[in-house]
Amino acid sequence: MLHIVNKSPSERNSVDTCLGHAKDGSAVLLIEDAVYAATAGNMSEAKVKAAMPNVKVYALGPDLAARGMSARVLDGVNVVDYGGFVDLVAEHSNCQSWL
């Protein structure tokens, strides 16, 4: 399953709840304000890192760039463009947006 999150972890609990429901082998794509969760020093850094051995974490590059965060991406987070977003949706048998 592909989980898509679009909320900053310091504003809403979507990243937390998503990580709590992402089964081993699933993927999490951070878009819009959720890309902050993929950056060093962010309050959810430890949680994202803890999830990474079992869950693949992706962040949308254009959203990182738009927020001045491209150079602060955590090691192990895969940065994708919109084409990569489409591929992720296609590769996983189902998807969910944690609105």
Binding site: N6, P62, Y82, G83, F85, V86
Partner: peptide, 26 residues
């Protein structure tokens, strides 16, 4: 698409996602 234009990025993201879908032949 569940949010209006300009107020929220949702419609922009959906549009760019749609364009990328079409570009990949979906």
């Amino acid at each position: 698409v569940n949010e209006g234009p300009y107020q929220h990025q949702a419609s922009d993201s959906a549009y760019l996602f749609a364009k990328a879908c079409l570009a990949k032949g979906h």
